[in-house]
Simulated assay, not measured.
Amino acid sequence: MTRDQFSKIAYNGLWKQNTALAQLLGLCPLLAVSTNIVNGVMLALATILVMAMSNLAIAALRNLIPHEIRIPVFILIVAALVTVVDLLFNAQLHELYVVLGIFIPLIVTNCIVLARVEAFAAKNPPLDSTIDGIFMGFGLLWVLALLGGLRELLGNGMLFGGIDMVFPALSPIRILPESYPGFLLALLPPGAFILLGCLIAWKNWMDARAAERARRKPPVAGEATAEAGA
């Protein structure tokens, strides 16, 4: 893998083809668990682990899987890996496992995982596929962390609620004064939709600004000479 290929995969996963803001996949867990940073980040880490391992396994076996039964085989591989992650969470982070509930097993049916397996891992080498799975997962992670942080801050004026379930020595951080009454809408599903819509609008605005700057950028000397000669 060249540096340019790595950069393209990373850029696609983190920004251009961001699963939450561009492809709008996995909205159910995205909106349901993003009530705080900890829940969102931990579910995203579980998804990253599943995506990386499933992309690696399917890319390595892609030439051995008959095309006609590829989807059932893909789901079987993903389900086996999700079961491993689910058992790990139950054993090591039981309190958080109870909070996340059904959303860890539902990674099996998450469109993010199946879409990347079908669109990328089934057509590319194992290393490229593993890196693609990791960066697609990190694209989901930063959106979940940002959305969870915004909802948590607006909802109750704190950050990192539930961090003690992961690191018992730590405690949540109060950002706004104790007198802050809280904004309940931010913690409810309508608030999640509104904030996600704002993030999507922000991404589209950033992309439009980048496109406008690229359009206005003067051509380099070599390109200008080539155009003049043509």
Rank of each mutant, 00 (worst) to 15 (best):
D86L: 05
L88C: 05
L88N: 01
F89E: 02
F89W: 02
N90H: 06
N90R: 07
A91Y: 04
A91F: 09
Q92N: 06
Q92C: 09
L93S: 02
L93H: 01
E95H: 01
E95G: 00
Y97S: 10
Y97W: 08
V99M: 02
G101M: 03
I102S: 09
I104T: 01
I104C: 01
P105I: 06
P105S: 07
P105V: 06
P105N: 09
L106E: 00
I107C: 07
V108D: 01
V108M: 04
V108E: 03
T109Y: 09
C111F: 15
C111N: 14
V113R: 15
L114E: 10
L114Y: 08
A115L: 14
A115G: 11
A115V: 13
V117G: 01
E118L: 13
E118K: 11
F120H: 13
F120N: 12
A121S: 15
A122L: 09
A122V: 13
A122Q: 07
K123Q: 09
N124E: 13
P125I: 11
L127Y: 05
L127A: 10
L127N: 06
D128M: 08
D128V: 11
S129E: 07
S129D: 13
T130C: 14
I131L: 13
D132E: 11
D132T: 07
I134H: 05
I134F: 03
F135M: 11
M136H: 12
M136S: 08
F138I: 10
F138Y: 09
F138W: 09
